[in-house]
């Protein structure tokens, strides 16, 4: 009986959390048009979460691509069809690895920064001070960060994929001697616009999800040092789990 009640409580808390996040999203989106009036704030955030994540995204993209080159070549040469390396690796990068790894890196690099920044603002009463001055903290602090993240992630995703393809090419063509023409022409013959679109759509969805989780966790953080720390941890965990679940759903819909 006790167990049943606990289960029910957990379920209720989960439903309440989903509701709270949804309402928060509605509030942020409601303030988004007014946040657009001051594009400087959004540019700052695109710089913070996007431009400053560029190095880690590009490094990881290169190495993920190079690993795909090694593994893909090893796998395909067992079937004697190394020429399909370009196609296989590109599709893997476009449809799965690019968006998912970018979202995970974004959650780790930028999501935590967003959550702890907003959480610290909450802990040091800066958000309350803004409210006192009749400045809506959602409009001034949360909406620009959310929009910045949602803009940055799709861009980071396509950069990751492009660098990744370069990495595959580096290993497959330069090191293992897959024919350059076969590599590119097979890729061009079997990759079509929908595959690119799938990657971009996933990037957009993951960007919205990860940014929302980060700003929500920061905004609702308990205003103590432990609270901010917990909010940061929860940001990474929830973003990662959400990304993978959304990835499955999006793949099932778009395949």
């Amino acid at each position: 009986m006790n167990l049943l009640r606990e289960l029910f409580e957990t379920l209720r808390a989960f439903v309440a959390a989903v509701g709270a996040v949804t309402l928060f999203l509605v509030r942020v989106l409601g303030q988004a048009p007014r946040a657009l009036v001051r594009p400087g704030l959004i540019v700052d955030q695109v710089h913070n979460v996007g431009a400053l994540s560029l190095v880690i995204i590009m490094t990881c993209g290169l190495f993920v691509g190079m690993v795909l080159g090694l593994q893909g070549y090893d796998l395909l040469q067992r079937f004697g069809s190394e020429d399909a390396l370009g196609t296989g690796a590109t599709l893997a990068l476009l449809k799965e690895l690019g968006p998912v790894v970018t979202a995970l890196l974004f959650a780790g690099r930028a999501g935590t920064a967003l959550a702890s920044e907003i959480g610290l603002m909450r802990a040091t009463d800066q958000l309350t001070a803004m409210e006192m001055m009749a400045v809506d903290p959602i409009r001034r602090v949360v909406a620009p960060r959310f929009l910045g993240g949602a803009i940055a992630v799709p861009l980071l995703t396509v950069i990751f994929i492009s660098i990744g393809i370069f990495g595959v090419q580096l290993i497959g063509v330069q090191q293992f001697g897959v024919d350059t023409a076969a590599f590119w022409s097979q890729m061009r013959a079997s990759v079509d616009m929908n595959d690119v679109l799938e990657g971009v759509i996933k990037g957009c969805v993951f960007g919205v999800a990860c940014s929302l989780v980060a700003v929500y966790e920061g905004y609702t953080a308990t205003p103590t040092p432990e609270g901010v720390g917990r909010a940061t941890t929860r940001t990474v965990v929830i973003s990662a789990v959400l990304t993978l679940i959304l990835d499955y759903m999006l793949t099932a819909v778009m395949l």
Binding site: V46, L54, T90, P154, L155, I165, V191, D192, M193, G199
Partner: peptide, 24 residues
């Protein structure tokens, strides 16, 4: 602004590459 601009341009260049170079 300059580094943000570079980042955004790089993103669109990557998208352009994906759309034009690897599809038929």
């Amino acid at each position: 602004e300059i580094s943000t601009g570079l980042f955004v341009l790089l993103g669109f260049a990557a998208l352009f590459f994906l759309v034009t170079q690897i599809t038929n």
